[in-house]
């Protein structure tokens, strides 16, 4: 093939555009070495295409360059590449992501530790407070019941119908005393035994009303369940009675007085 024929065929242009078959590509490469005119022509075609590209250049985003330089700077060197060793590199973005997630994890662990401790403390304080509240509740209930009792006692003492009768100590217990509140309107009898000495084990005080010269059972004197104290208590009712007396009897009482008389008082 003549040199001019080669040049005018258009094969050199298709070669520059990368459109030639492998066979034609090999032929063109032989001609380049063989004919300086072919080499010169190809160079001019290439320059024209290069200028065409330059004339319609579009500036890419500046970030692209740093991405490229980043990805080539962490590539393995050529000697490693020749050994066909695959090196998996981690992109810097993932390094940052990994670092950030470790920091977040550590932050979360510290946060959880601190708040678990706080939670424990608050839990303990809460239990303590609840315990204190329960204690106060039971104290309050106790005070309330005591207040009820006092109120009841006061209502007996303060009633306009109540007539007080002092029972004075006898020879067995000169310091002992008791008080009767007899309700004139209803005949109810209340006893305040708080100044009686403690009854010995197995024994119990019993109140008697003297009606027409004979003692009649007016009821057993009991201690309150709480505090083991004597309180004002309601006894049996009497329409009239000349006197009241308290004797120490066996537990449960007797139909007629058998024990020693501790206090007595006349209406």
């Amino acid at each position: 093939m003549e040199v001019q024929e080669i040049i005018s065929s258009g094969i050199l242009e298709t070669y520059v555009l990368g459109l030639t078959s492998a066979e034609d590509t090999a032929r063109v490469q032989v001609w380049i070495k063989q004919y300086p005119e072919v080499a010169a022509e190809i160079n001019e075609i290439e320059e024209a295409m290069e200028k065409l590209a330059m004339a319609q250049a579009v500036e890419p985003n500046a970030a692209v360059k740093s991405k490229i330089l980043n990805s080539i700077s962490i590539k393995p060197d050529t000697s490693v590449k020749e050994n066909n060793t695959k090196i998996y590199s981690i992109s810097p973005v993932w390094k940052w992501v990994a670092a950030a997630s470790i920091i977040l994890l550590l932050g979360s662990v510290i946060f959880n530790y601190v708040y678990y401790n706080k939670y424990q403390t608050v839990n303990y304080e809460n239990a303590l407070t609840r315990q204190q509240l329960q204690n106060q509740d039971s104290q309050l209930a106790q005070l309330n019941s005591q207040l009820d009792m006092l109120n009841h006692n006061m209502s007996v003492v303060q009633s306009k119908y109540s007539e007080p009768v002092s029972l004075h100590g006898m020879d067995v217990a000169p310091n002992a005393a008791a008080k009767i509140f007899w309700m004139k309107n209803t005949g109810e009898v209340y006893l305040d035994p708080s100044n009686l000495p403690d009854a010995p084990a197995g024994k119990q005080y019993q109140l008697w009303a003297i009606v027409d010269g004979k003692p009649e059972d007016a009821g057993m004197i009991v201690k309150t369940k709480k505090g083991e104290q004597y309180q004002i208590q309601k006894m049996k009712s009497f329409g009239n009675a000349q006197a009241f007396a308290v004797t120490l009897e066996t537990e449960g009482g007797n139909p007629t007085p058998k024990g020693a008389m501790y206090v007595m008082g006349k209406m």
């Binding site: 065929s9 094969i11 075609i45 320059e47 024209a48 065409l52």
Partner: peptide, 15 residues
């Protein structure tokens, strides 16, 4: 081929 050549020849004149 010849059409590509004539096109590039035009561009070469221009450059």
């Amino acid at each position: 081929k010849t059409r590509i050549r004539s096109a590039i020849l035009e561009l070469r004149k221009l450059m």
